[in-house]
Design a protein around this nucleic acid. Structure first.
Length: 230
DNA sequence: AACTTTTGCAACCGCGAAAAA
DNA sequence: GTTTTTCGCGGTTGCAAAAGT
């Protein structure tokens, strides 16, 4: 079945938003909120599709958006989080208040990706960078028995790595929220589902860590004793 | 000054997931 | 349980401004 277009294409404006359109959108959302993006443009009298309105609001008009160039600290944060999360721009954005996923994605592609290459002189240039660049893999390895207590799982790092881009040791542990202090040593409790319960309470931080865990191993409960995820 | 190329960013598109019917 | 609708995400494109020739 062919998907219906997100909006009736004919007669709708595309491209750059005008200040007048911005004003109409902001006033409408301030007054009525944005419960239904699809219906919003009609209600507001805008010749735009709902998707376009949503994007404009989320990426540009929201009052809590931080404009201007990224600080060194923000850039470092992006690079670090990208190592852990890959191209999960929305997850990265959650850790940078006022920044949007779109903005972070742009910064990554225009500045940080190059910077990353420059600051890694030992990094071999891939033969086909356009294919291999963002494809990371999760390596599952076995930990020697003495590294684990009898019923524990061991996670040395939740980041996936490529051969050329090893993660700094302990990076993710540094940033672990308090709730995860039990695994600060790298030893994960036997009941891995407990972590998912922690992760699943809707809190942004937990959502963030949940993303890491999901990315790293798909399902913690599938891990067998003594497995190590790099 | 005029033209071409590069860069940076806003916006679009298609897809999958989640929610609703 | 299935179908339809809506939302949100990530990849990509288009265009204006800046830089280079």
């Amino acid at each position: 079945m062919v998907r219906a277009p997100c909006c009736e294409k004919t007669g709708l404006n595309k491209g750059q938003w005008t200040p007048e359109e911005d004003q109409v959108l902001v006033e409408h959302i301030m007054r009525f909120g944005h419960g239904n993006w699809r219906a919003l443009p009609k209600q507001a009298g805008l010749l735009r599709c709902g998707k376009s309105c949503r994007l404009r609001w989320m990426n540009y008009l929201r009052p809590d958006i931080k404009r201007g160039s990224f600080s060194e600290e923000e850039e470092e944060t992006i690079v670090r989080l990208h190592r852990m999360l890959g191209n999960r721009w929305s997850a990265i954005a959650k850790k940078l208040p006022g920044r949007t996923d779109n903005e972070i994605k742009n910064v990554w592609h225009t500045h940080l990706k190059k910077k990353k290459l420059v600051t890694s002189p030992n990094t071999p240039v891939p033969e086909k960078p356009e294919e291999s660049e963002d494809k990371e893999r999760v390596v599952v390895d076995t930990v020697s028995p003495e590294q684990t207590s009898s019923n524990d799982y061991f996670v040395s790092s939740c980041a996936s790595v490529s051969e050329s881009d090893q993660m700094e040791e302990g990076l993710w542990l540094e940033a672990l929220p308090e709730e995860f202090s039990a695994i600060g040593s790298g030893i994960m409790p036997q009941d891995a589902s407990h972590l998912f319960n922690l992760c699943d309470n809707g809190d942004d931080d937990m959502e963030f860590w949940r993303a890491i865990f999901v990315r790293a191993q798909g399902d913690l409960t599938q891990l067998s004793k003594g497995q190590c995820i790099f």
